[in-house]
């Protein structure tokens, strides 16, 4: 697979080329490509003159980065303390069950990535989930089914990914 180089070049041009820019660079790459492609990490290592091993070490240490492509839609379930005491575990479990993925996992069809996040700043509406930057407050397992349906209207109940 070849990756588009244009965003990478823009990103490289935006930051000074030294080690302290590494995390910011990786953030921009994550945003542009939705993950950190290994060949880009190698490119970054060269440009910043940082050992490749270190770049991989940093890339795998921080949660903001993923080494595999994330799904088109990220479902963020707030598992902050306030949401936890108001039942976020039930929400998370139900997502895991219906999507058939673990926390941090992506559905086979690449549609959804399920993520646990910490307090998103809206504890007043706990438990909260965030889908495509929209906050859904006072979540219940009940509402969750409806929400999934609205996100994925075409998906047949029993089948997984379309072959592509």
């Amino acid at each position: 697979m070849t990756l588009p180089q244009a965003p990478l070049q823009n990103i490289l041009d935006k930051h000074p080329h030294d080690e302290s820019s590494l995390i910011m660079l990786l953030q921009d790459v994550q945003e542009a490509y939705r993950y950190l492609p290994p060949e880009i990490l190698v490119e970054i290592a060269k440009t910043l003159n940082v050992p490749k091993a270190k770049v991989f070490g940093v890339a795998t240490f921080y949660k903001a980065f993923s080494m595999e492509p994330r799904g088109e839609t990220e479902i963020k379930v707030c598992c902050g303390t306030a949401c936890h005491v108001r039942g976020s575990t039930l929400i998370m479990d139900e997502f895991k069950r219906t999507l058939g993925v673990e926390e941090g996992g992506t559905t086979e069809d690449g549609k959804f990535t399920l993520e646990a996040v910490n307090c998103v700043g809206t504890c007043a509406m706990a438990p909260v989930i965030v889908v495509k930057d929209v906050y859904h407050g006072h979540m219940t397992v009940n509402k969750l089914g409806k929400l999934l349906k609205s996100l994925n209207p075409k998906k047949a109940k029993t089948t997984g990914a379309k072959a592509s």
């Binding site: 290994p38 091993a53 270190k54 770049v55 991989f56 795998t60």
Partner: peptide
């Protein structure tokens, strides 16, 4: 500087970078 810790916490390991040997 060919190896590094990869990952964090209990899943941390010591390794060369992922992927191909020429890396």
């Amino acid at each position: 500087s060919a190896i590094s810790t990869i990952g964090r916490g209990i899943d941390k390991i010591v390794s060369v970078p992922y992927e191909t040997e020429e890396n």
